[in-house]
Design a binder for these strands. Structure first.
Lengths: 191, 191
DNA sequence: GTCTATAGTGCGATAGAC
DNA sequence: GTCTATCGCACTATAGAC
């Protein structure tokens, strides 16, 4: 038998979301989360550099989905096609059975500017990762950065629609819709 | 004679940037900034809700430039024209004699993730403000949000070019260039 | 695993401006 | 008298150092 229960990290994440939902972020202490997961405060800070980080565990998996989409695109794909490919990859991260959990998590984040800051930092990192994947496909700067950022723009708006109350369409459909809309508003001006 | 020197807020901001540059963000304490400005730590926290906030004072002015550009655009402007108008407005916030100061400030921010988080939160707020200006001009959702976010995407990339070492072209020229590039990568896929 | 510095809050007191 | 900017002190939680 193991010396510790396995899955400490996951227990901490689950306990944290639970407490944030029920008492709010500010009212929840790191030591309270640790206690709920059966470990000491010190252990909490060994797994997560700060209190906010506990909500942002799966980012690298999402990044891989984005870039895997780009890497899998055909050789002759245009930058616009690559954006579509990245979004299709990201869509795999959000099957319908994840929607309820996403709503719950996002409600916590939306209620706390400190958590929004952390989320924005993670998303900015994602945009950089995607831009790097574009650059690997030969897209020059500044187009690669713009394309990476645009992927995240579409992603963000589509995600907001996806978790809206009553929405039932799958993520991929919404992302495709929003991408088309972006093509219109971002078109060349004055002609 | 007044009981206190006026301009406490500005003195705190100047002292903070100075100390952040010379000793780094983490090594600079709030009470150190306060002392350098001739007030107590408690006064620092009355002007700024937290230590990072001291670097982000002029955001609302920038927001006004963005939205003023949108508001001043002609009645029949397309969404793409409105994006150009917003960027022209923002450009007025960055005359060439501001470039050295911007480089200095950005170097501090780039060196500290905590400051990047705060900056991203401010920029996200700007994107929302611009989106609201678009919505006021009758642009429906989700196009307004996409256009607002795209303004900030172009702004961010153009700003990065503007403060690059050796760059001398004015902000407006770079923004226009980047905007054209965005139109290409964000165009409709698959045709 | 303990110890400590710092961020950030709450509250009462002060003293000028109006 | 009210309003507002400041001080000063006590306090907790975070987060990192040892």
């Amino acid at each position: 038998m193991a010396r510790w229960e396995p899955g400490t990290r996951e227990r901490l994440q689950a306990a944290a979301l639970e407490l944030f939902v029920s008492q709010g972020f500010d009212e929840t202490t790191a030591s309270g989360i640790a206690a709920a997961a059966g470990v000491t405060e010190r252990t909490f800070f060994r797994h997560f550099t700060d209190k906010r980080e506990v909500l942002f565990g799966g980012q690298h998996v999402l990044a891989e989905r984005f870039t895997a989409g780009v890497d899998a695109a055909p050789e002759d794909a245009s930058p616009a096609d690559l954006v579509s490919a990245a979004l299709r990859g990201a869509g795999e991260f959000f099957p319908d059975d994840r929607r309820a959990w996403s709503r719950r998590r996002q409600a916590v984040i939306d209620a706390h500017p400190a958590l929004q800051e952390r989320e924005l930092l993670k998303l900015a990192g994602l945009a950089r990762d995607v831009a790097a994947a574009f650059a690997d496909r030969g897209v020059p700067e500044p187009a690669a950065s713009l394309a990476g950022q645009s992927c995240l723009t579409v992603f963000g708006v589509a995600f907001g629609l996806w978790i809206a109350e009553g929405e039932t369409r799958p993520f991929a459909e919404l992302a495709s819709l929003v991408h088309g809309e972006l093509a219109r508003v971002a078109s060349a001006p004055g002609r």
